[in-house]
Design a protein around this nucleic acid. Structure first.
Lengths: 194, 194
DNA sequence: TTATTTTAATTGAACGATCAATTAATAAAA
DNA sequence: TTTTATTAATTGATCGTTCAATTAAAATAA
């Protein structure tokens, strides 16, 4: 029963944070959506903070496993194909749930003032850049690959941020995903042929 | 006395949001920093929400007047020079106050759940893209200029976001500013010579 | 099988803390 | 004195947490 309840409460948290924001999300707004009593949160997560952190860890693991799944589906991918899979996996959460995007931004903002959320955010940020750099390295000198990864990560985050803040539609996110992929081609053309 | 007190309370709000986050910022944490009592906030701003919104408007007007000042200092600027001034003005708030950067992200996240903050955020977002597009239009076809502006805005926001989230140093922000300027050159080289 | 006991899961009321806002009192300035 | 500026105390609402009580399920004994 425990794993079921835990997931239900995490889903309810995603829903509440997406709709009300992290600031207005209370144990009541969460437990109400989950159809349970408020006490259950402390029972399964030790408290509100524990549930918040578990929810972020869930989003992070979803993102990670999503990419690993894509990678595993087809072996012997070219570096360019791998780069574009990374882009796709970063824009994927939108397709699954519109809730997720708003929730991410709420948690990121909070990570500046919460050590555990900061740690989790750093893991995610570092992994994105590291994944990108690994593939770029096979297409250009090491130093250029590092900068290309840095720029691509920023471009993905920037396009994503502007989509979220402007209440972008599904089409807007798809467009952003396409621009990110085009940018990768540009970087390879720029650095790759030296 | 009123304008003085208002600015003091806005400064105290910036300080509190930067250190504690928007969630943990209360009328007490603000008024304490300003060396006043909590009641004064309702007196001058109608309430906490009014002070929050006034603080965002202050940040916005600072950003705007900063750019206008740069533009006015030297007339007859080339489009490229104008583009780089726009970049500089967007990375400038950091040099003035490290508080500002954290505060911006907090407000952006909240803008998803607050109509007035959303409106203000949209004004800012639109102005950045519009300013960029105006200068790009003098260097390339209209359609390309639009995309170049979109990409540059995303690059600036993305680099800025990653700097803020990773507690970037002054040098990190300067580096990000430099990368943004380089990217503008790349876009002009890509689209400008057709 | 039936009755009894034990365990696990869940509730919701009570508590203390804290919030934003208001009020009445006080101080300063005109 | 009258007006303006400011404080300090107070209000009612709401927060997260705790915990005794309740229910449902499982295990054991008869």
């Amino acid at each position: 029963m425990e794993p079921v309840r835990r997931q239900q409460l995490i889903d309810a948290t995603l829903s509440s944070v997406a709709e009300l924001g992290l600031h207005a999300t209370t144990i009541n707004s969460i437990s109400k959506r989950a159809g349970m009593s408020s006490g259950i949160i402390s029972h399964y997560f030790g408290g509100k903070q524990g549930l918040i952190e578990a929810t972020v860890r869930f989003l992070l693991s979803e993102l990670k496993s999503n990419l690993l799944l894509k990678m595993a589906q087809s072996d012997s991918l070219s570096p360019v194909q791998r780069l574009k899979l990374i882009v796709e996996s970063n824009f994927a959460p939108i397709q699954q749930q519109q809730d997720s995007t708003r929730t991410w931004l709420n948690f990121w903002a909070q990570s500046m003032h919460d050590p555990e959320l900061f740690r989790l955010q750093k893991v995610n940020s570092t992994r994105l850049r590291s994944n990108l750099q690994a593939s770029f390295s096979k297409l250009m000198p090491r130093k250029d690959a590092k900068q290309a990864a840095e720029l691509t990560a920023a471009m993905i985050d920037g396009l994503w941020l502007r989509c979220v803040l402007n209440r972008g539609s599904q089409a807007d996110f798809s467009h952003a995903e396409q621009l990110s992929k085009q940018y990768i081609d540009t970087l390879i053309a720029q650095f790759g042929e030296q």
